[in-house]
Computed example of a mutant assay.
Amino acid sequence: MELLGFVAICVASLVGAVGQRALGMGFGLVTVPVLVLVLGPLPAVTAVNVLGALTSIIVLAQVWRLVQWRRLIWLLLPALAGVVPGILIATSADDAVLKTVVGVLILAGVALSVWMRRSERPLEGDVPVAVTGAVAGLLNGSVGVGAPVLGLYGAVGDWPQRAYAAALQPFFFVLSVTTVVSKTLLDPAGALPWPWWAWLVVSAPLVAGVFLGDRLAGRLPERTARAIILLISLLGGISVLWSGVAALIAG
Results as ranks from 00 to 15, higher is better:
L234T: 04
V201F: 09
F211L: 12
I232M: 08
S203I: 07
P195W: 05
G213M: 01
G251E: 15
K183R: 14
L248T: 05
A247S: 08
L248V: 03
G251Y: 06
D214G: 15
Q169F: 11
V181I: 08
W199P: 07
G251D: 14
L234F: 09
V201I: 12
W242K: 10
V174M: 13
I229K: 01
F173L: 07
P195N: 07
V207C: 05
W197F: 10
A247R: 08
W196M: 15
T184E: 14
R219I: 01
I229H: 01
G190P: 11
S243F: 04
L168E: 09
P195K: 02
S233P: 05
A204K: 01
E222F: 00
W196D: 10
L230N: 11
F171N: 07
L186F: 06
I238G: 04
A227G: 11
G213C: 04
L175A: 10
S182Y: 01
V201G: 13
S239V: 12
G213N: 12
V177P: 14
V177W: 10
G251I: 05
S182G: 02
L206S: 03
R226T: 12
V174D: 15
V201Q: 03
P221D: 04
A166G: 08
L212Y: 00
G236H: 09
D187M: 13
W196L: 14
A189T: 11
L168Y: 05
G244M: 03
D187V: 13
A208S: 09
D187I: 06
V181F: 08
I238C: 08
A191H: 02
G251P: 01
V210N: 06
G251V: 01
S203E: 13
L241G: 11
R219T: 06
A227I: 09
L231M: 14
A246N: 03
I232E: 02
V207N: 00
K183F: 03
W242A: 13
A191Q: 10
A189D: 12
T224G: 01
S176H: 15
L230V: 09
A208F: 05
W196C: 13
G236Q: 03
L248A: 01
A198V: 06
P193W: 06
E222W: 00
I238R: 08
F173V: 06
P193R: 08
L200S: 11
A225Q: 14
F171L: 12
E222Q: 00
A198L: 09
I228C: 03
W242T: 10
L212H: 05
S243T: 11
A227T: 09
L200Y: 00
L231R: 13
A227Q: 12
R226N: 06
W194C: 10
I249Q: 07
L231G: 14
A166T: 06
P193T: 05
P195E: 13
V210C: 02
T178D: 13
Q169P: 03
L186E: 11
R223S: 15
A225T: 00
Q169Y: 02
L248P: 10
L216N: 09
R215E: 00
R223G: 04
L185S: 06
L220D: 03
W194N: 03
D214R: 15
A247P: 01
P188T: 13
V240T: 14
A167D: 00
S243M: 03
V207W: 00
